[in-house]
């Protein structure tokens, strides 16, 4: 889901940078209020954690593997706004040092994966697990459903962003200048692979991690307040 440079036109890249600027500012203000001084390194450690989650190859039926984004998981563990900053930092490191995800597309990637994904998933998890004890199975299911829905909403938005490019940027004779597929191809392609494969990976990883944490360290599940 990391959009590389060259897929989105300049107007889309500029729009998402402009859209993310107040979101980053709000996230920083909220986190500064809620995070205790001694939890400052937690943001960086959370960012490194979300970076590394994306590198885990998760086995899927048929002998292949896929990878999870872990956005909802990080939001459940750190809180939605702290997750927004942590995932942003992880995406910036990936784009700058690894070339994974474009530098000009950082705004769009952060909107999809550091804002929409963790916030949608986190609040869905809160609703579904409302009043559930820390060790209840409902929390595990809620985390799985939140992971599945969160990544699918983000993937749908990425599909819309790709699909708008031929409409926004083309030559007089119809030649596409950036991502070449319209909404009728880009949205089903992005939504389909996430509904059928990557959404399930995200759901399984999010649910199982919450299940293991319930057994290993349930006190960590109380922390998501950022």
């Amino acid at each position: 889901m990391h959009i590389p440079d060259g897929y989105l036109g300049p107007a889309t890249c500029g729009f998402f940078y402009a859209l993310m600027l107040p979101i980053w500012t709000a996230a920083a203000k909220i986190v500064k209020k809620t995070l205790k001084a001694k939890q400052v390194p937690l943001l960086a450690i959370g960012a490194a954690f979300s970076f590394v989650i994306m590198m885990f190859n998760v086995p899927i039926p048929g002998g292949s593997t896929g990878h999870a984004v872990g956005g909802v998981l990080v939001a459940i563990l750190l809180g939605p706004w702290a997750a927004c900053i942590a995932i942003t930092v992880a995406l910036v490191v990936q784009a700058l040092l690894f070339g994974d995800g474009g530098i000009t597309a950082i705004g769009a990637n952060c909107f999809n994966m550091a804002f929409v994904l963790p916030l949608t998933g986190y609040y869905l998890y809160k609703v579904l697990s409302y009043n559930a004890p820390l060790d209840s199975n409902r929390r595990v299911w809620a985390a799985g459903v939140a992971g599945y829905i969160g990544i699918n909403v983000a993937a749908f938005l990425a599909g819309v962003e790709f699909g708008l490019q031929p409409l926004l940027h083309h030559t007089a004779d119809g030649q596409a200048l950036y991502s070449p597929y319209g909404l009728h191809i880009a949205v089903p392609a992005m939504a389909g692979e996430h509904l059928l494969i990557f959404g399930w990976i995200e759901a399984i990883v999010t649910a199982l991690v919450i299940k293991f944490l319930q057994r290993q360290a349930p006190e960590l599940l109380k922390e998501g307040r950022g």
Partner: peptide, 17 residues
């Protein structure tokens, strides 16, 4: 394999915290 990955992620977060 999925359980191993999830256990690893949970354990990594525990250590990170």
């Amino acid at each position: 394999g999925q359980h191993i990955v999830a256990w690893n992620i949970a354990s990594l977060w525990n250590r990170s915290y």
